[in-house]
Write a protein that binds this DNA or RNA. Structure first.
Lengths: 232, 232
DNA sequence: GTGATCCGCTTACGGTGTAAATGCGTACCG
DNA sequence: CGGTACGCATTTACACCGTAAGCGGATCAC
């Protein structure tokens, strides 16, 4: 019935069929739900209703699987309508949208983001979290086209990466730290260490625990834009 | 004979003896040399001339081993004569010394640092890379004693952590990326991807590959200090 | 000497990544 | 329609992993 509907060879029959893309998606979803530690080839295979070894037809190794998961998650940037590939409203708008898009990804996948941050990049100048050549090129093009020189565009790329990586990694780790204790079995009593030796920490504990991530992010981003403007 | 020399029970006999501290040190050294992936209980035991299970008398699990390694490596801060626990020459000098001390640690242990950056902290407000209560308290005390208010000191702690984490993690990852290909077996030819689709990256490849880490670090640190000064 | 205690070793189990061989369902070709 | 080739999931196998449990010899207090 629907076999001839699509010209390209889709095979929507009831028979089980695997695709690299669905493996990577399932892997990302699995980490989102259970964390990286739990992700094994066998577990992921089970999630897809398949034996572990079947995955190897589409993924050369677990390491490549993880790289692929990072790539897939980061590709959500391209589908984000609020992130523009070209700076239609100036470079500052471009950078703000890009930064917010990446923050959205980090917050949507807090257990995957440490992987984005720490997977060894293919080249030393491919910096997390902006790990794809396409986006790096887009970034450099946007700044070059807005009057930045070569040196300035490269410096901006580095400063932008560093700012985002620090902020987002700390933010997702703080999220994880609040959830991690398996089920908050003993929520109240003596989980807290004795802080009497650290009077400032003790006194400021409440303020330290407040979540100011969003404001901090905006303020630091604002500051970054001002710094970059001086490179023009 | 020498038994009574030291009041605490040191046991310097020739017999093999294990200590938690030497396990952690050996673990850090092992990661420095072979990377985290290679570190297993059996390998680490072998390095110490001991069976794997012996380590469990001093370390409850591999996870705790990793936490301990992070702690030990970070403790080098306390032995660094250029880092002061109290701000004898003003808060800016204090922060600069602290930042440089942490950068020295990161560069001395590039394969351990990602662990420092990503191990889940015990509380959400214990932020890498300054992960110890003692140093957090020292930090807050230094700023409070220099005229910062409570809010400002906490904000400074957050900004400082974020800045350091981003910079240092990117720096050690760039180091690793240059070494990682197992022995640079095919150093010249077609390892490099085709960049013709990414003209800006291609044109700026040389500048992107330059190592400006040191200058960037100093400049960003300088900028951070200026920002923090406005909180006073 | 003699018992207790410490502490490294041995053994064992379930889980992991993955190489290699196996076998089944489908699609093409006559 | 019958055969055959092939694509792909499965099965089997192996070395290695973290670690629970019990063993046994050296060391200590008395």
């Amino acid at each position: 019935m629907s076999d001839s509907e699509s010209a390209v060879e889709t095979r929507p029959q009831g028979r089980r069929r695997l695709e690299r893309r669905m493996i990577l998606d399932a892997g990302a979803a699995f980490i989102d739900e259970h964390g990286l530690r739990q992700l094994s080839m066998r577990q992921l295979g089970a999630q897809l209703g398949v034996e572990a070894m079947s995955l190897y037809r589409y993924v050369p190794s677990r390491e490549d699987l993880l790289d692929g998961i990072v790539e897939v998650v980061l590709d959500e940037l391209s589908d984000d309508p609020d992130v523009h590939r070209v700076p239609t409203d100036g470079w500052q708008d471009y950078l703000v949208r890009l930064a917010h898009g990446l923050r959205r990804i980090a917050l949507a996948h807090p257990l995957v983001f440490p992987l984005v941050a720490t997977r060894p990049p293919e080249a030393p100048w491919i910096r997390p979290p902006l790990r794809s050549l396409r986006w790096i090129d887009s970034f450099l093009a946007a700044l070059k086209g807005s009057g930045f020189g070569d040196e300035a565009a490269v410096a901006a790329y580095r400063a932008f990466s560093s700012f985002l990586l620090g902020h987002l990694l700390l933010e997702v780790e703080a999220m994880g730290a609040e959830i991690s204790p398996v089920s908050t079995s003993e929520p109240s009593s003596e989980t807290s260490t004795d802080l009497s030796e650290y009077p400032h920490v003790e006194r400021l504990q409440e303020q330290l625990s407040e979540d100011r991530s969003a404001q901090e992010f905006e303020e630091s981003l604002e500051n970054l834009l001002e710094r970059l403007a001086t490179l023009l």
